[in-house]
Amino acid sequence: MDLTLEDIQSASGRISGFINKTPLLSSSLLNQWLGHEIFFKAECFQKIGAFKARGGCNTLAWLTENGKKPGHIVANSSGNHAQAVAYASNKFGVPATIFMPEYSSKVKIQATRSYGAQVVLSKTRDITDEKVREAAQKEGTYWIPPYNHEQVICGQGTAAYEALCDLDDMDAVFAPCGGGGLLSGTLIAARGLSPQTKVMGVEPLRANDAAESLRKGSVQRLANVPDTLADGAMTMAVGDITFEYLKQLDGFYEIDEDRMVYWTQWLTHLLKCTIEPTSAMSMEGVVQWLKGQNPGKRVLVVISGGNIDQPTRSKIWESNYLDQSPSL
């Protein structure tokens, strides 16, 4: 089934009582330096500190609405999706077990437990994924995957939907790509609300399974867990559902780690909020695209989250990039 704007709108209505309508931010200084207008949909102010709350809440609300509320929820994630499902399960009164790899952010593991979910840690992502598949076989149990699920996609798309309802004449929207759920939802929302707006994806060069998949025309899987600061984009492969939407994107950018750190520092400084490297890397894609554009473009960037643990924070700030002002 091809999802439509109406599906995103339905999701928006379902989750309105469970999530925050997050603010749109901008920096006059950044706009002056670049010669374009950049708007940031700040999902770092979302419940659980990331857009993933939208997909988790929509899926459980949709199940409940259709008389299919499960007795138990399971999910697999290295971070924000784990918190999202734990939060949604808490709100809907459904017990949850979340399977996470041991290398997941300690902050995200702790937060997932704090919402009342049982957390099961495994040495690798593959073991984690196998355990959730086994758990999902039990009667009365429903598996909410991190991205490859239509109602998860619809929930994630409500972030761009909200923003594009408030902004006119946008030339482009950029969002990060992990498994492709946020980008798929963003594409559906943009195509329905603002067909002239280009939709662009961004992922780490060190975790570029989506870019490789797009180049080769089929879903490609990473051989090893990627070494990247963008822990929200460490998925081993995109899904078969999300890949069909990613193929419709207007552009896709692969970002070096140092540029990711550069924009994490600068966006934190300019917007005065906590921004994950996964979110910040989108800004490097914006800059690369703007280099070939006439001045005065209006661009939306989805800031996907703001959950950073201490080791990652230390790596981000071990070098100073704030003496190099942004420019084209």
Results as ranks from 00 to 15, higher is better:
283 M>Q: 05
32 Q>T: 10
174 F>K: 00
35 G>P: 04
321 Y>S: 07
229 L>G: 02
241 I>T: 13
50 A>N: 08
9 Q>M: 12
235 T>M: 11
136 A>S: 15
94 V>L: 06
278 T>W: 01
301 V>Y: 00
22 T>V: 11
105 S>Y: 00
245 Y>K: 05
290 L>C: 10
47 K>W: 02
244 E>R: 14
228 T>V: 09
323 D>Q: 14
157 G>Q: 02
325 S>N: 09
56 G>R: 02
59 T>W: 04
36 H>S: 08
76 N>S: 12
172 A>Y: 01
81 H>M: 13
160 A>E: 04
70 P>G: 10
291 K>C: 09
269 H>T: 07
312 T>I: 14
285 G>I: 03
281 M>Y: 00
5 L>C: 06
311 P>N: 13
2 D>N: 11
24 L>K: 06
160 A>S: 14
95 P>Y: 05
72 H>L: 08
200 M>F: 14
99 F>G: 03
65 E>M: 11
136 A>C: 08
259 R>L: 06
268 T>L: 02
288 Q>T: 10
213 S>T: 07
22 T>C: 12
150 E>T: 15
235 T>L: 12
247 K>W: 05
257 E>V: 05
23 P>N: 06
261 V>I: 15
295 P>L: 06
271 L>A: 03
191 R>E: 14
210 A>Y: 01
246 L>R: 01
226 P>K: 03
203 E>V: 09
292 G>I: 06
88 A>D: 04
9 Q>G: 09
22 T>D: 09
229 L>Q: 01
107 V>I: 12
145 P>Q: 15
213 S>C: 12
117 A>T: 06
270 L>K: 00
311 P>L: 15
221 R>L: 05
114 S>W: 09
282 S>Q: 05
213 S>E: 04
44 C>W: 00
109 I>P: 00
297 K>R: 15
87 Y>N: 08
215 R>M: 10
214 L>F: 03
157 G>T: 04
